[in-house]
């Protein structure tokens, strides 16, 4: 069974990651924490893109809602983490459900633009609701439980939450629900005529994506000890979209690799040159002109070629 192989491989990856702090590099631990958060964020977006075939330009909204809600509940309202994290995730999911209700009535570019419009409203609220969100000064001074205040403690927390989140997404994406979503992506008319209410399915997928996007955002807000309106801006949505496309939308794990590749590349490139956009632009050109299935597609093709010879 391939499933058992996947399980073993994932367990090994988690275990290896858990050993990382032993290497003693704070830099590596922090960087990995960031990659884990982005990986979850990208995976959540791919529930919409890879599994329903719609592109969302506004996924940062749920990331930001999760982040703001979690940090505000922790800090302003002194809620314990065990309450504020779930509350933030549920709130992100609820907003995604409301927004999704309207967005799934449309498809293609109209869907994408409507997600963008709603996301910019969320940005507007974060910007203008200064009393609660801090407006363009950002929401800072987050109080974290002592256990998470240390970077290694937070790394393990992130690793655990992301592992559970990815596992949950894996189950959902490989469930009967997930397989039906793929059918909708491949051919919505046909899916409708095997008795599937495609709009409601896409709505559910949108809500799932928003919920897990919110979880990633909550982790992000606590990690950075603050949220800023940029986190809700459309550039953040574009960034995660590139991660997903870079990794490849037709594979479950693709976005994880896309997130890791993009974030690490960006971090390293920025150390040597201010021209990160040029580097990324060239990478995208290569993907578009040479690797249309993303990194995972490339890996699959290399494997296939090896298998043949």
């Amino acid at each position: 069974m391939p499933q058992r192989r996947h399980l073993v491989a994932s367990a090994i990856v988690v275990l290896l990651l858990a050993l990382l702090p032993l290497a003693g590099s704070r830099y590596a631990v922090d960087l990995t924490t960031e990659v884990l958060i982005y990986a979850l964020f990208a995976l959540s977006l791919n529930v919409i893109i890879g599994f329903t075939g719609n592109i969302s330009f506004g996924h940062a909204a749920y990331f930001a809602i999760g982040g703001y809600a979690c940090t505000i509940l922790l800090t302003t309202y002194n809620w314990p983490l065990a309450a504020s994290l779930p509350a933030a995730v549920v709130l992100a999911g609820l907003v995604a459900a409301v927004v999704g209700y309207f967005c799934v009535r449309l498809t293609q570019i109209y869907f994408a633009m409507l997600t963008l419009a709603f996301a910019m409203l969320v940005w507007g609220v974060a910007f203008k609701w200064k009393a609660v969100t801090g407006g363009d000064d950002g929401f800072t001074g987050i109080k974290l439980p002592a256990m998470l205040a240390h970077h290694v403690g937070y790394f393990y927390f992130t690793l655990a939450v992301v592992a559970v989140g990815v596992a949950a997404l894996w189950v959902i994406c490989h469930s009967a629900f997930g397989l039906t979503l793929v059918a909708i992506r491949e051919n919505a008319v046909r899916a409708g005529f095997i008795g599937v209410d495609t709009r409601r399915m896409r709505w559910a997928a949108f809500t799932v994506a928003g919920t897990f996007g919110g979880l990633a955002g909550a982790l992000f807000g606590m990690y950075h000890r603050g949220m800023y309106i940029e986190n809700a801006y459309w550039t953040e949505s574009a960034n995660v979209l590139i991660m997903v496309l870079l990794g490849g939308i037709y594979s479950f794990v693709g976005p994880i690799f896309g997130a890791a590749a993009l974030h690490l590349l960006q971090t390293f490139t920025n150390q040597y040159t201010p021209y990160w956009p040029t580097v990324l632009g060239l990478i995208l050109l290569v993907i578009v002109l040479a690797l249309p299935d993303g990194l995972i597609g490339l890996a699959a093709r290399v494997k296939a070629r090896r298998g043949r010879t």
Partner: peptide
């Protein structure tokens, strides 16, 4: 899978988020 999805839909299992579709 083309046929499997149709059977899943016929049985109303498209809302099952846990059972592996395949």
């Amino acid at each position: 899978e083309n046929v499997q999805v149709a059977l899943i839909a016929h049985e109303g299992q498209q809302w099952n988020l846990f059972r592996p579709g395949r």
